[in-house]
Design a protein around this nucleic acid. Structure first.
Lengths: 339, 339
DNA sequence: TTGTACGCGTTATCAG
DNA sequence: CTGATAACGCGTACAA
């Protein structure tokens, strides 16, 4: 750990004023001779400008804060990479808020998001309550929200029409001859859970396929373990032609369970996931999945945020991203081919 | 986006001095009556302390910066979660540096890590050159390094004896009857690549198993795609009894390739991965893997950093973490059972 | 072109 | 217990 130096020390060392040092640092005009001296002094002292002081003066922290419920989820990770890809050639650094689950945590976190700490904020609340909506509206920082925008919340928004994605999946299953389709979902208390549940109901009605409450399964969260736990209790899933899972992790758990009971996925039964994560091509059979364009959403969110920072008064914008179905081996089953 | 307020405005609004407001915020003694007034004013104005000003004054940013080459790698993600788990109940926030690959990028990044921007730094350079070592040594921030500590670098360090992990894997393979063992590794230009390569050589010698250059494969990086690309060109892998992969992603690619050629993994050939990521239980067959204790390493690194921040002058510490072998289906093969 | 002096919003010291 | 005021380190009018 080297020494600490201030701009004043550099100035004294170089025999110039602090103003000159500041100018050299910030690239304003200076006579070559002075610049030379200053640079030498900076190098010698190993001087680095104090970013807190700079932030206070310039009223910019050059930081953008990310606040996700579960950074461990591959989908959020991909969003993060999308954000990072556009932020990497800007002056902004990325900050990760500690993961927040409950409404209370989110509320507290948003509350504590003081000025000067971040120039912008990208959030994706997994639930939406009136308190959260209120907290978001009281933010003093440019914000963009990824996901379902709560009623009366006025911030930029990028969202995916996941219902449309479900529709694509159901249509595909219908096409290859599946009639009895189960849904394996996460909890209804979450935004994605609720949206995808509704999407399933609508999609099934649209293609005139029957379903009832017993064909809709709820895992305790969106992880593969949750799917595994769920299916260890309930062993009725193999009676369906197909199971649509509301993310790839759940699908991976489902496939694992089915295979352990010697059900041949892609032959006896079709499985579809959502998110189209890297996992899809690693599984055997590879997983058909609805691509929710996570990286794209991240990029768009970052771009939206940069524009808003530049122009804080413009009206909030809303961008929709279209899902795509990526067909792989887990839905190879042909109508009438079944045993 | 709500309004901005300063401590001075709050003071005026409450009819007290800025000092009193500051005291109320920071929990120092104040008469109930004043506290009451101040709190009311804070609520009314929606005041949030400016963290840049606070950081400047207190000389603490309450931020800890993380600098990894590839945050998309599940192993690093798990390290991050470990770090987060100990930081979550401290005052520190986690910052993610933009991902850095080349030595130059790392160098520049470390260089630009000014004071006041982070109170601590956790890095895990994937390569180590003299320049990087120099850059690390010139840091003005408490730092802990995860991974191989370059020569003459004086910072706290937590590392895993990956060679020992390889040894466990090879010993296990030997035990179940494998004699011809291949290694699928990432590039030798990386620290992990080099360490694991050497570990393999040593382990094979130790159990007196033959190997030569042709039995060691190098993927262009540590991803499943890299393994896939590699094996599309070279179709000799199935001739081995077992293939040891230097991470789970590579192993997933290997398994996929083997299965596409109708080689039965876990029966015809054994496969072992490293990192013991969640992926292991999702694959079919499930993947035997060397657990490199990523989460534990993250926790230890965070704890080390917190101690160093508290006590900046103590001698650098070095903590070794022991790997563990987790046996699953991909090494079910018994000696003599092969076709 | 360069230097002086002030202010950014907080916290801490020191009188009162 | 409270109020005035001096820093913290930097950027930048303004004056020279």
């Amino acid at each position: 750990m080297a020494q600490k130096a201030t701009i004043a020390m550099v100035a004294k060392h170089a025999g110039v004023s602090v103003a000159s040092v500041s100018r050299v640092i910030n690239g304003t005009l200076a006579r070559p001779a002075t610049e030379e001296k200053v640079r030498a002094a900076i190098a010698e002292l190993g001087f680095q400008p104090n970013s807190a002081a700079r932030a206070l003066k310039v009223r910019e922290s050059e930081q953008i804060c990310l606040s996700f419920a579960d950074i461990g989820n591959p989908a959020y990770l991909t969003i993060t990479q999308g954000i990072n890809s556009v932020l990497r050639d800007t002056k902004y650094r990325l900050i990760l808020s500690s993961s927040l689950g409950t409404a209370d945590e989110i509320h507290n976190h948003l509350q504590s998001l003081g000025r000067g700490y971040a120039d912008g904020l990208i959030i994706s609340p997994i639930t939406s309550t009136p308190e959260i909506a209120k907290a978001i509206n009281s933010l003093t920082v440019p914000t963009v929200l990824i996901g379902t925008l709560p009623k009366d919340v006025l911030v930029d928004n990028v969202y995916i029409d996941s219902a449309k994605g479900i529709e694509l999946a159901v249509a595909h299953l219908r096409e290859i001859g599946c009639k009895k389709i189960a849904l394996v979902n996460g909890p209804l208390s979450t935004n994605p859970g609720r949206r995808r549940h509704q999407g399933f109901v609508d999609a099934m009605n649209k293609v005139k396929l029957k379903y009832d409450d017993s064909s809709i399964y709820f895992a305790r969260d969106f992880t593969s373990q949750a799917a595994t736990e769920l299916l260890e209790k309930d062993k009725t899933l193999h009676r369906y032609d197909a199971v649509l899972c509301t993310n790839d992790l759940l699908a991976a758990g489902v496939i694992r369970n089915l295979q352990s009971r010697s059900v041949r996925v892609g032959e006896d039964i079709s499985v579809i996931g959502m998110d189209n994560t890297e996992l899809c091509t690693l599984l055997n059979p590879s997983l058909t999945s609805v691509d929710l364009r996570a990286e794209r959403r991240g990029q768009l969110a970052a771009e939206l945020l940069l524009e808003r920072i530049k122009n804080p008064l413009s009206a909030p914008r809303k961008i929709e991203v279209k899902p795509e179905l990526v067909i792989r081996e887990s839905t190879n089953m042909r109508a009438g081919t079944r045993k």
